[in-house]
Design a binder for these strands. Structure first.
Length: 258
DNA sequence: TCACCGTCATTTTGGGCGTT
DNA sequence: AACGCCCAAAATGACGGTGA
């Protein structure tokens, strides 16, 4: 479990102190608690860190999603993927454009690992409906959602509670060299999508919506298929990015020991 | 006790990215 | 037609140790 080997997440522990802890042969929270102290750290710092470890361990035990949403910096939320794996929701939205001041949310797609659900504008999409679909969610997974999807939802559904840990595959991917957008990364990872929607992109999602507004029901079907492909592919991509991040973390730690 | 210095941690600043 | 996030580098702040 990655998180339990991290010390930089605690107050007053930075990269240097963390290296001191590793150099003392301590690689986990439990190891830290079992030691009587760490040479190189003041007793005062050792004790305040021990207290924080107990608090965080308890939050993990309780699967307290809100605790991590507020206390864990977002670039480390990926570490919760395995821990919360039974409560992960993959989310992707479609809109009429990129600008939340002018544009509207048209579809919200949510996949919980078992079934896909879509909420369509004018056909049941509402703040309450989204909130209900996410009620058991302890970890959100999106692509670029921290900059696009979530702020868009906040803007249209004012006051919606999205205070949930959030693994953003865009930033996680960047760290392991996966850049260039969702579709490009999917290809690089060998994740496929159905040929019927393989040519659809975000811009076409906009025109499909307007076509549906003019009465073309087939356009909606295609839009929903596209949204579903995007959303479900997030669930295929997440464990792959997770593993790469995991490997990166351990190699960095070994580096620092030398 | 006090001024000073070195070491870390934390905060601030600026540039680039990717979303429909 | 925007915007929030991330990283890196620079600035600021807190703390402990030293020497007189």
């Amino acid at each position: 479990m990655v998180l339990k080997s991290k010390f930089r997440i605690f107050n007053d522990i930075g990269p240097v102190s963390e290296d001191i802890i590793y150099a003392a042969g301590i690689y986990s929270w439990n190891g830290f608690l079992e030691s009587e102290g760490v040479s190189g750290l003041t007793q005062r710092l050792y004790e305040s860190t021990s207290e924080q470890i107990k608090e965080w361990s308890n939050a993990l035990e309780m699967k307290d999603a809100k605790f991590f949403a507020t206390n864990l910096q977002s670039s480390m939320h990926w570490m919760l993927l395995k821990e919360f794996q039974e409560h992960v929701c993959y989310l992707d939205i479609e809109t009429t454009g990129l600008y939340r001041d002018f544009d509207k949310v048209t579809v919200v797609g949510i996949y919980d690992g078992h079934s896909f659900q879509n909420l369509v504008r004018g056909r049941g999409l509402s703040k309450k409906a989204i909130q209900k679909s996410l009620s058991g969610c302890k970890l959100l997974v999106t692509y670029y959602g921290s900059c696009f999807d979530l702020p868009f939802l906040q803007s249209e559904f004012y006051g919606i509670d999205l205070n949930i840990p959030h693994f953003d595959l865009c930033f996680g991917g960047r760290k392991v060299g996966l850049t260039g957008g969702l579709k490009k990364i999917e290809r690089r990872l060998g994740i496929s999508r159905d040929s019927s929607i393989s040519s659809v992109d975000g811009f076409e999602a906009v025109t499909l919506w307007y076509s549906f507004q003019k009465g073309n029901e087939k356009s909606l079907k295609k839009l929903l298929d596209y949204c579903m492909a995007d959303t479900i592919n997030l669930s295929k991509m997440a464990p792959l990015v997770f593993e790469k991040l995991n490997q990166l973390e351990t190699s960095i730690r070994l580096d620092h020991l030398n």
